[in-house]
Simulated assay, not measured.
Amino acid sequence: MDLKPGSRWKSAVCTAEFVVVRPPSAPGELACGGHPVVAHAATPPPGLSPSPDASAGSQAGKRYGDAETGLEVLCAKAGVGSPSLSARPLTIRDAKKLPSSD
């Protein structure tokens, strides 16, 4: 799985879609709902359903990251599956504070 910046991926088990903002420093498998994601143009395999331990959901417009590898993805479309990298759940990144203007 080549997680290049700007590459688009979608969940194989729900409606979630992701865009890679920052690639990981080490190879890993991006997954959603407990199953590997597929390229945006690909057809997901039939008959899959979200894993109960990976169904916390993903929120559109939120950035998710992995502290260990530096991976950062933007959720472009919400879904019931939660994103992970190599079986580690991704966490929602906080918004960066803008400097105050005086």
Rank of each mutant, 00 (worst) to 15 (best):
R8S: 10
A12H: 11
G47R: 15
C14R: 09
L98V: 13
T15A: 15
C14P: 07
E68R: 15
V37L: 05
G57D: 01
T91L: 11
E29H: 00
K4H: 13
T43P: 06
R63Y: 03
E29W: 01
S49L: 07
V73W: 00
K4P: 00
A26R: 15
L71T: 04
V13L: 05
V19Y: 01
P89S: 12
L3N: 10
C32G: 03
A41V: 14
G34R: 14
G47Q: 11
P23S: 11
G61D: 05
A78N: 04
V37D: 05
P83E: 10
T91K: 13
T91F: 01
A95L: 14
L48W: 15
P46N: 08
R63Q: 14
P24A: 02
L71R: 03
L3G: 09
L48T: 12
R63P: 02
W9R: 08
E72T: 15
A31E: 06
R22Q: 07
K4N: 14
K77M: 01
S55I: 06
V19K: 08
S86A: 11
P44E: 02
G79C: 09
T91M: 09
L71E: 07
L3E: 05
A54P: 02
I92Y: 04
A39Q: 11
P89M: 02
G28P: 07
L98A: 12
L71S: 06
E68M: 10
P27I: 06
G79T: 14
A56C: 13
L74P: 04
S84K: 01
A67T: 12
I92R: 07
S82N: 04
E17Q: 13
K96C: 05
P5G: 14
C14N: 14
V37S: 06
V21Q: 06
A95F: 12
